[in-house]
């Protein structure tokens, strides 16, 4: 059973941008695309730059995949899967996320 943690209100999110939340000791980057009414959650740690910064990256899409570009060295990570587009051996954790009654909920231990 997924364990959903209530994180914040949708109003706390940054439209077309990211924020970082602390969820059970993990840093989680949450991205919000209001036009598509979509939210994404990835681990905030950039494995190339070795810093907790991904929530501050620019988001968009590359060939149809929703992505965030690292603010340090601009590698792209798929917002749904966490896969790095430039280096297929690298995937960062992606988390389940949903909006319920105006609240943002994240489950960081999937299964």
């Amino acid at each position: 059973m997924a364990h959903w943690v209530d994180v914040c209100s949708v109003d706390d999110l940054q439209p077309n941008s990211g924020v970082c939340a602390l969820i059970e000791g993990q840093q989680v980057a949450i991205f919000y695309m209001p036009k598509e009414k979509t939210v994404y959650a990835l681990n905030n740690y950039d494995p190339f730059g070795n810093a907790n910064v991904l929530s501050r990256g620019l988001i968009g899409d590359i060939k149809g995949q929703p992505v965030v570009a690292s603010p340090l060295y601009k590698q792209h990570f798929n917002l749904q899967t966490g896969a790095c587009l430039e280096d297929e051996t690298v995937t960062i954790p992606a988390y389940d996320i949903r909006i319920e009654n105006g609240r943002v909920k994240v489950s960081i231990n999937a299964e």
């Binding site: 695309m33 598509e36 968009g60 899409d61 149809g64 992505v67």
Partner: peptide, 10 residues
């Protein structure tokens, strides 16, 4: 088209 990226947005 699409959503934009870290090239066109800035």
């Amino acid at each position: 088209k699409g959503k934009g990226c870290e090239i066109c947005k800035p």
